[in-house]
Each structure stands twice: as C-alpha cells, then as structure tokens.
Design a protein around this nucleic acid. Structure first.
Lengths: 188, 188
DNA sequence: TTGCTCATGTAAGAAGTTACATGATTCA
DNA sequence: TGAATCATGTAACTTCTTACATGAGCAA
C-alpha cells in the first residue's frame, strides 16, 4: 500500500468526528483546523480520491448542485486505525519557515523606521488573531469542552495554545518597536 | 526581471553580514538561521545561481577541494537594495503546518496513554531545544549584542523569541499530559 | 581503509500554489 | 442582473525533499 503523507493524515483528522463533504472539509481548513494546518481546494479533492483508493475513507453520493455528485466522506475502520496509530507516533519537527523572524535576523540591513512600522503592522495582525482565538475559545467555555473526553476538547486545547503563545509574540514585537527607536538611522 | 521568492530573500538575509560560500550558507541554515528558516543543499546551489543571474549577488572563484571551484558569494548593491526593501514590507502570514497541534485536535481518536507518551516526548524535544537556544543566547549576553546597532542583535532578538515562546509550549504539553490522565481509556 | 569535513552540483518525484472550469440556487 | 454560496474537479507551475554523484585532504 502506498503511503499517506501529512495532508492525508490531516484529512483523516478533520473527518475523525464524523462524515463531511469535500467542501465542508475545505471550510474546516479555513476556520478551526486552518490555524495549524491548511490546504487549498485543489489539493483536497485529489487527496480524498487517494484516501478512497487506499480504503481509508469511503463516501455516499447524492446528486449535487453542480454538474458532479455531492460526496459525503467518512472514515473506514482501516482509516480510523491508521489515524489512531499515527496520532501517538512522535511528530517529526517541522522545517521552520517564519518570514518575520528571518527579517529580524537581517534587520540591520534596513532602515530602523521602516522596521518599526513593520513590527507595528505585525502587532495589529497578531492582536486580531488573538481576539479571534479568544472569542472562539470563550464560546467553548461552559459547554463541557474543558473536559478531555468531550468531543470539542481537541479544539479547545488548540485554541488554548494560541491564546497563550500569541501574547508572547506580541510582546516580542513591542520590545522590538522600542529597540528600533534606539537604533541610529542607517550608517552607510 | 524575474521575481525572487522567499528562499532567495532568505539567502540574501544570510549574506547580509558578509560574503560566504554555499557550504557556509548551508551550515547557517542548520545552526543560527535554521531555527526559523531551512533549506536543503539541493535548493541552495540552484538558488544562488538564480540570484547571480539576477545580479543580486556575485562571487569570487578559487580552486576548491573537489572537482569544482569554490565560490565566495557576496551581496551586490542591487542585492542589498532588494533586501532592505523587502525587510520592511509586511510579511504575509505563513500557511501554518503544525503536526503536533493537528494531532491534538484529533486526540480523541487515539488512546489516552499513547497520547500522554506522545506529549512527554514532545516535552523532551522542546526542553532540549530550549537549552540550546538559552546556551546560544547566554553566549551573546555581554558582547554588546543586546544593543540594537550591534551586528549580532538580529541573532540575539530571534533567540530571545525562542527562549520566551518555548516555555509556553512546554507548559501546554505538560497540561495535556495531566489532562490525558483524566481521560477514560478508549471504548471500542 | 573507512569515515569525516570541505565543496559543488544534478535528477526525480512529492507537495503546495494559483488559476481555470462548470452549474444550480439564493439573496440583494 | 449580479454576486455569493454550494459543490466538484483539472492544469500549469513553483517549491521542497530525497537521493545520487564527484573528489581532495585528514584522522582513527
């Protein structure tokens, strides 16, 4: 059997709570799951076809709104087994690719005023993200999602990480704004 | 002129402090820069060739140890301009791909004991990473790198972020280990 | 003589991005 | 009438990963 790949497992994860259409998966890849895993539409449909071929998911078909049938995908027992086996295996540390930190490393090659504006923009973006995370987390509090056996506990836990790590990053940007004020304007 | 791409800018960043050979760049992509940007060897050499074609870097050649000449690359004025212009532009939020958080989302589909072991493994890995960051950051303290005009300030600032954000993540994993102890073992 | 470091490159394939394409229904 | 939502797919392209390939000098 051919191997699955991170995207395949991501789709199995999204399906772990129940059947969804490709379109619904796509939406989850924006809203709750998209905070830690994303994939564009063009990747999702071929990947679903591969997983179906591998017997890890299957689907019902109904006549859809467009020219093609609407498919509702669900995990097969084999898919559920593959998922649960993968979940407990150590995650390989991801290749980090963070443009903001990269820019910070080379920050001396740019004008301090420009960098300050850059970090201020980051702060705005991060604060908006934090507000979004907090709103969603607040909506879960009191629903039982804080209990680890609750179906929404996974979502609650991921939002908790976001709500704790974003402030650290915001403070770091604020510190850098302050530091930029102490830099001399470009000595060439 | 063709466009540059994130990898190209990453290479310009690595070269901002002075000339390096491809091999040296490769090492930076493991050690100081690799914490927030990585690229394998097979990507670096073609990318350097592209940047050279675009006139953003150039190089000296000396006879090398192997069959090919050893090249020492440096930023051209055009390269330095391209870099400094890019640095101050807002960074597009990166497509997040974090296996650990993804696993947490679907955590209910696995055995709590297995997940607990998983998070304990993460804790070990993160603690080692933190120790590494702290050692490198400590080595910079007292050298003047804390001043924003110092050539090592960029490295100092990136390490500072690592030293502040890793503990948050470690605590989160510890919290999850505790939560897993409260989960009922899988009803199959 | 086996393996490591220095030093550069290529090839094949997987994964990810951007854009195109269809077509019904609903809402302003 | 025009845009958004639902719903599925393909094509072309770029980027990233894994593996191969060469070869000198040095150390155990």
């Amino acid at each position: 059997m051919s191997k699955i790949g991170a995207l395949g497992y991501a789709l199995l994860c999204v399906l772990h709570k129940g059947p969804l259409t490709g379109y619904e998966i796509l939406q989850r890849m924006r809203k709750p799951v998209g905070y830690y895993w994303t994939a564009p539409q063009s990747q999702i449909y071929p990947a679903l076809a591969r997983l179906t071929e591998q017997g890890l998911i299957d689907h019902d078909e109904e006549p859809g709104p467009g020219p093609r049938p609407r498919k509702t995908h669900r995990l097969t027992p084999a898919g559920r087994d593959a998922l649960s086996a993968w979940l407990t295996q150590p995650a390989e540390p991801p290749a980090p690719r963070d443009e903001t930190i990269l820019k910070t490393y080379a920050q001396l090659a740019a004008d301090p005023g420009g960098m300050s504006t850059f970090y201020q923009g980051e702060i705005v973006r991060l604060r908006n993200q934090l507000a979004d995370y907090q709103a969603q987390r607040d909506a879960l509090i009191g629903t039982g999602a804080e209990e680890p056996d609750h179906p929404a506990f996974g979502a609650y836990a991921t939002l908790t990480l976001g709500c704790r790590s974003l402030p650290v990053r915001i403070e770091w940007c604020e510190w850098l704004v302050a530091q930029m004020a102490h830099r001399r304007p470009r000595p060439d």
